[in-house]
């Protein structure tokens, strides 16, 4: 497999605050990585470092180039939606397509127009007049019409209603993603992206808490749902985190012998959100 992102010991400091405190990340083509972390965890800084939008220390190669030196060259093969509503508000939709067509050799204008035809975004509309949802649709159509190898999405659906969000990720997965492409998504809506991810990375306070494939997570972590007496016994086994359930507890274990847990209750793969909460709580508890 070809490596798309190779980062080792990435560091970035804003004054007193250590936004990135030595982050490692390896990602291969054909992956969908979910970057999950609380506010201020350094997700945006990490993504911007990968794109060469901010300076950082450490070893970094993205699609074979150092983004800090060759930002423009990287942008030939990488796309990003950095935030909702960053499209220039003064432009008309067709002017935006003109511009992209003019400067981006991998942009397919006809494809973008086709994608937009399925939305309410009219070509003659001014971007400032579009609703937030329509702006995101426009940006997604633009990005999907670019034949890029890496797509980075930083909170792409923030502030959108659930219908838009669902549609956004479905379209991304069905019409865009293939084995050649790599997508990195940072989001708070963990539940909504969980089923499209192949890899996940948890961040907290500028560090990566966990970075693994979804398959590996299934093997390493297990959630036990136990009630009554069994719950008390289960809590006696070293676990990562627990939360109350009706009449019992749900406990998440890391690298534990499942035969030991099986008699105590139901075993299942923990939801990403629950695992994340447990990991962050554990990390914060260590301080």
């Amino acid at each position: 497999m070809r490596s798309v992102v190779e980062a080792r010991g990435l560091q970035r400091r804003f004054g007193q605050q250590q936004a990135l405190a030595g982050v490692d990340l390896q990602l291969e083509a054909g992956s969908v990585l979910g970057l999950i972390g609380p506010n201020g965890a350094g997700k945006t800084t990490l993504l911007r470092s990968l794109l060469g939008l901010t300076r950082c220390e450490g070893e970094l190669t993205v699609l074979g180039v150092d983004p800090r030196r060759d930002h423009a060259r990287l942008m030939q093969d990488a796309c990003f939606i950095a935030d909702t509503a960053v499209l220039p508000r003064w432009m008309r939709v067709d002017e935006l397509l003109d511009y992209t067509d003019g400067v981006h050799s991998r942009f397919n204008r006809a494809h973008a127009v086709r994608l937009l035809a399925g939305t309410e975004v009219g070509l003659r509309r001014r971007i400032g007049e579009l609703s937030k949802g329509m702006t995101v649709q426009l940006h997604l159509a633009l990005v999907m019409a670019i034949d890029a190898r890496l797509l980075i999405l930083d909170e792409p659906t923030l502030g959108l209603d659930i219908l838009f969000r669902k549609q956004f990720f479905e379209q991304l997965l069905n019409d865009y993603f293939d084995e050649e492409r790599t997508i990195i998504i940072s989001t708070h809506q963990v539940e909504e992206v969980e089923n499209i991810l192949t890899h996940v990375m948890f961040m907290n306070r500028g560090r990566g808490l966990l970075c693994d494939s979804m398959l590996a997570l299934e093997e390493r972590y297990v959630e036990l749902r136990a009630v009554g007496e069994a719950a008390t016994r289960a809590a006696g086994i070293p676990h990562l985190g627990q939360r109350p359930l009706l009449g019992g507890k749900a406990l998440i274990y890391e690298d534990v012998n499942r035969d030991l847990l099986a008699p105590l209750g139901d075993l299942r793969t923990p939801a990403l959100a629950d695992l994340f909460v447990a990991k962050v709580a554990e990390d914060n508890g260590h301080e």
């Binding site: 794109l51 939008l53 423009a72 942008m75 030939q76 960053v86 220039p88 992209t100 400067v103």
Partner: peptide, 12 residues
């Protein structure tokens, strides 16, 4: 207006 984030996403 932060549209620089869009301009910077283009290979310019």
């Amino acid at each position: 207006d932060r549209s620089i984030l869009f301009w910077k996403s283009m290979p310019v």
